[in-house]
Amino acid sequence: ADDEVAKLLVDAYRKNDEDKLEEVKKRYNISDEQVKRLIRKVL
Rank of each mutant, 00 (worst) to 15 (best):
E4Q: 09
K7W: 13
R27F: 08
K20I: 10
L8T: 05
N16E: 07
K41W: 07
R40D: 15
L38R: 02
L8I: 10
R37Q: 14
L8S: 05
K7G: 07
V10G: 04
V35M: 13
Y28N: 03
I39L: 13
D32T: 07
K26S: 08
K20M: 14
A12G: 02
K25N: 00
D32Q: 05
D3F: 11
E22T: 09
L21D: 00
K36A: 12
R40H: 14
E22R: 12
D3A: 12
A12V: 02
E23C: 06
A12D: 01
D2F: 14
V35I: 09
D11C: 10
L43W: 06
V10F: 13
L8C: 07
R14Q: 14
V35T: 07
E23V: 05
E4I: 13
K20R: 12
E4W: 14
L43P: 03
Y28D: 01
V10M: 13
K25T: 03
Y28S: 01
K20C: 08
D3C: 15
I30T: 01
V5S: 03
L38P: 00
K15D: 14
L9E: 00
I39K: 01
V24I: 15
R14C: 14
L21I: 14
K7Y: 08
R14M: 15
A12L: 09
K41Q: 13
E23I: 07
V10A: 12
D32G: 04
K41A: 13
V5I: 14
D3H: 09
L21M: 12
Y13G: 01
D3I: 10
V5Q: 02
D3M: 11
A6N: 07
Y13R: 02
L38M: 10
V10S: 06
D11V: 02
D2E: 12
A12I: 04
Y28Q: 01
V35Y: 09
L43I: 11
R40G: 13
K25D: 00
E22F: 06
Q34K: 06
S31F: 01
E33Q: 07
K7F: 09
D2G: 09
D32N: 07
E18L: 15
L9W: 02
N29K: 08
A6I: 15
K15H: 13
A6T: 12
K15T: 13
D3G: 09
E18W: 15
E23Y: 07
A12W: 05
A1N: 13
R37I: 14
E23M: 09
V35S: 08
I30P: 00
V42R: 04
V5C: 10
Q34V: 11
V24Q: 01
Y28M: 04
V10E: 08
E22Y: 07
D32R: 02
L8F: 03
Q34N: 08
S31G: 05
Q34A: 11
E23T: 06
R27D: 04
L9R: 00
V42I: 13
D17F: 04
S31Y: 01
L38I: 15
N29T: 03
R37D: 15
K26F: 05
E18Q: 15
D17Y: 03
D17A: 04
S31Q: 04
V10I: 14
K41H: 12
V10P: 00
A6V: 14
Y13A: 06
Y28C: 02
R14F: 15
I39D: 00
L21V: 07
K15Q: 13
V35L: 12
E33L: 05
K36M: 10
L9F: 04
D3R: 09
E4L: 12
K20Q: 10
E22V: 07
R27N: 06
K36R: 12
N16F: 07
D2A: 10
K41C: 08
I39R: 01
R27T: 09
V42F: 15
V35A: 14
L21Y: 05
E33I: 06
N29R: 06
V24A: 04
Y13V: 10
E4N: 10
K20P: 01
K26R: 13
L9A: 02
R27E: 07
I30L: 15
L8M: 12
I30E: 00
E22Q: 11
K26E: 07
L9M: 02
A1G: 11
R27Y: 07
Q34D: 14
V42Y: 15
A6G: 08
V10R: 06
E4C: 11
V5W: 11
D32H: 05
L21G: 01
I39N: 00
D32S: 06
L38D: 02
V35P: 00
L43N: 06
I39V: 08
V24R: 01
D11R: 02
D32L: 05
E22M: 11
K41T: 11
A1H: 13
A1L: 15
I39W: 02
N16M: 09
E33R: 05
V5K: 03
L43Q: 06
Y13L: 13
L8P: 01
I30C: 04
I30D: 00
A12H: 03
V35Q: 02
Y28R: 01
K26G: 05
R40V: 12
A6F: 11
D11H: 03
L21P: 00
D17Q: 06
R37C: 12
D32V: 04
K25H: 00
D32C: 08
Q34G: 06
D32K: 03
V10C: 11
R14D: 08
L38W: 02
D19R: 13
K20A: 15
K41N: 12
K7Q: 12
E33F: 04
E4Y: 15
E18S: 14
Y13H: 06
A12N: 01
N16I: 03
R40S: 14
V42M: 14
L43Y: 06
Y13P: 02
Y13F: 12
Y13K: 03
I30R: 01
D3W: 14
N16T: 03
D11M: 03
L43C: 13
N29F: 04
K26I: 09
Q34T: 11
K36V: 11
D19Q: 14
A1K: 11
V35E: 04
L38F: 04
Y13N: 02
L9T: 00
L43H: 05
R14I: 15
L38S: 02
E33D: 11
N16K: 11
L43D: 06
Q34S: 07
